[in-house]
């Protein structure tokens, strides 16, 4: 049982599509397989449907059609076992709980034993030492996002969904986090999905980048990132890295160009 828990799951989307009640088509029928233990970055223009796709994988939003499988089971099963964590685009910390209290809440919601040491280690990892007892209102936007990342990690999920987790984090801290976090989820063997607007960050953190078209989201490019790990900030200056960021940029602008008239469903 314990071994099975730590095995990261594969995520399979079969013809998953989402049209909202108002008629907004957010995601076109989409086929997708995320390999166990890999980090996949989703890159695409604002409003293209990245968060929607993430929420469908998390089981928080039912797809209009198609099906999703996580480790061979529907998302509801992963939810039931509290096997996944989401770092939401908006940090959504409860204002009446301290940083530590917010992280502890995730443990109790996931029915895991309270673990003060793990919490303190994570607080240090995201660079919030000394702010454990601070309320979110007294933190900066970037500090709140880091607290939300710590909260997402504390339950040691098998599936980690990060929706623009570094949006408001400053450049230096971002680089530090980009160093530390992959180490953590590699050691644990976590299947990770990372939504980001930063191409550099996508290349630095992921094993694979999916470039999405403007709404409704469809995959315009699937780029493998075969750079060796661990990666360091200096890697960004290598030719291999530059070639990959160029490829992503190229795919992004192609997607924009092909958006009118809309792409046929893939």
């Amino acid at each position: 049982m314990a071994a099975e828990r730590t095995d990261p799951p594969a995520v399979i989307c079969r013809a998953v599509a989402k049209t909202f009640a108002g008629g907004t088509e957010a995601v076109r029928p989409l086929d997708l397989r995320l390999e166990p233990g890999q980090t996949t970055a989703l890159v695409g223009p604002s409003g293209c449907g990245k968060s929607t796709l993430l929420r469908m994988i998390a089981g928080l939003e039912p797809p209009t059609s198609g099906s999703i499988e996580i480790g061979g089971a529907p998302p509801a099963e992963t939810l039931r076992r509290a096997d996944l964590s989401v770092a939401f685009q908006d940090p959504s910390l409860l204002p009446w709980r301290s940083v530590r209290g917010n992280i502890a809440l995730a443990l109790s919601l996931a029915r895991r034993p309270a673990d003060a040491r793990a919490i303190d280690e994570l607080i240090a990892l995201v660079g919030l030492e000394g702010f454990g007892d601070t309320r979110p209102a007294q933190l900066s936007g970037g500090m709140r996002q880091r607290a939300a990342i710590a909260r997402a990690l504390v339950t040691e999920p098998r599936l980690l969904l990060l929706d623009e987790p570094f949006g408001a984090v400053d450049e230096l801290t971002r680089q530090q986090l980009a160093q530390d976090l992959p180490r953590l989820w590699e050691a644990r063997g976590t299947t990770t999905v990372l939504v980001t607007h930063s191409v550099t960050e996508a290349v630095m953190l992921s094993d694979r980048i999916l470039v999405l078209s403007p709404r409704p989201a469809a995959i315009v490019a699937d780029i493998a990132i075969d750079l060796p790990r661990p990666r360091a900030p200096g890697d960004a200056r290598t030719d291999a890295f530059a070639a990959l960021t160029d490829a992503v940029h190229e795919a992004l602008s192609q997607g924009m160009a092909r958006a009118e008239p809309p792409l046929a469903a893939q």
Partner: peptide, 11 residues
């Protein structure tokens, strides 16, 4: 999103 948080842990 606060309710999403609760639901994301299966509650």
């Amino acid at each position: 999103s606060w309710f999403d948080l609760v639901h994301s842990y299966g509650r």
